[in-house]
Amino acid sequence: HDVTIHAGDKTIHVHGASEEFLRIIEQAKRDGIHEEELLRLIEELVK
């Protein structure tokens, strides 16, 4: 999957995102996670 995530003034493109990655991001959004926290989460996941 190619994913584009908008968080605040940043746009992150993730190529080859796994289903698990997508679920984590969707869950985080539903939980109302702060955008900066979401960015950190994404950066950890894509290392």
Rank of each mutant, 00 (worst) to 15 (best):
H1D: 09
H1V: 15
H1C: 05
D2C: 15
T4A: 06
H6I: 14
A7L: 15
G8A: 06
G8E: 05
G8C: 04
G8T: 06
D9T: 13
D9P: 09
K10P: 03
K10D: 06
T11P: 06
T11G: 09
T11H: 15
T11W: 02
I12S: 03
I12W: 01
I12Y: 02
H13L: 06
H13M: 06
H13Q: 07
V14E: 02
V14M: 09
V14T: 03
V14G: 02
H15Q: 11
G16N: 13
G16A: 07
G16M: 05
A17I: 14
A17R: 02
A17T: 06
A17W: 10
A17N: 04
S18D: 13
E19V: 04
E19Q: 04
E20R: 01
E20M: 01
E20P: 00
E20T: 01
F21H: 12
F21N: 07
L22C: 05
L22Q: 10
L22N: 05
R23L: 13
I24K: 09
I25L: 14
I25C: 02
I25W: 02
I25A: 01
E26W: 00
E26S: 09
Q27I: 10
Q27P: 00
Q27V: 08
Q27Y: 00
A28G: 05
A28L: 11
A28Y: 04
K29I: 13
K29L: 12
K29F: 11
R30A: 15
D31C: 06
D31T: 11
D31V: 08
D31G: 09
G32H: 08
G32L: 07
I33P: 02
I33D: 02
I33V: 14
I33W: 14
I33S: 06
E35T: 15
E36H: 09
E36Q: 09
E37N: 09
L38C: 02
L38H: 00
L39Q: 09
L39F: 09
L39I: 14
L39N: 06
R40N: 11
R40I: 12
L41I: 08
L41N: 01
L41W: 07
L41S: 01
E43D: 12
E43R: 08
E44F: 09
E44V: 07
E44Y: 07
E44C: 03
L45M: 13
L45Y: 14
V46C: 09
V46I: 14
V46T: 12
K47Q: 12
K47M: 10
K47R: 13
